[in-house]
């Protein structure tokens, strides 16, 4: 169980960064919604776990946050990507793609490929 959440934590951060990169400043609910839409039911995380992660990313300087008015005119906390966050996203995307392609090649390889 614990291992799974650890993996999720790492990927979740990447998802948050990508979401903010694509959609621009968003509040917490918006981010959660977007991740849910894209990943479907595959990722059924508690929405609550998002908030400690947002705080961590903010402390690390990848994202920034400020109070603003949401669409229904409520006061909401909006998160946006910083320049450092964009760099991080870039680096982590590359890393992720590399890992994914290696794993992919590994998993699709047949016995004869290794001879």
């Amino acid at each position: 169980m614990k291992d799974k959440t650890d993996v999720l934590q790492g990927t979740l951060a990447l998802m948050v960064l990508k979401t903010l990169d694509v959609l621009g400043p968003l509040h917490g609910y918006g981010i959660a919604r977007r991740i849910e839409q894209i990943s479907g039911d595959l990722l059924s995380v508690n929405q609550g776990t998002l908030y400690p992660l947002l705080l961590k990313l903010e402390q690390e300087g990848s994202i920034a946050s400020e109070w603003g008015a949401s669409e229904n005119n409520r006061k909401a906390r909006f998160y946006s990507l910083t320049r450092a966050g964009r760099k991080q996203l870039h680096a982590e995307t590359q890393g992720w793609q590399q890992t994914a392609s290696i794993i992919d090649r590994f998993l699709t390889a047949k016995a004869g490929d290794f001879s």
Binding site: H27, G28, Y29, G30, A32, R33, Q47, G48, Y51, Q59, S70, N72, R74, K75, A76, R77
Partner: peptide, 26 residues
């Protein structure tokens, strides 16, 4: 940042408001 946050306990209600906002949307 975390060490700095030690001195600020008012930050606590930031989360409450965010959660309230989140639940409102949902």
């Amino acid at each position: 940042r975390r060490a700095f946050a030690l001195s600020r306990s008012r930050e606590e209600d930031r989360l409450s408001r965010e959660i309230e906002d989140h639940l409102g949307h949902q």
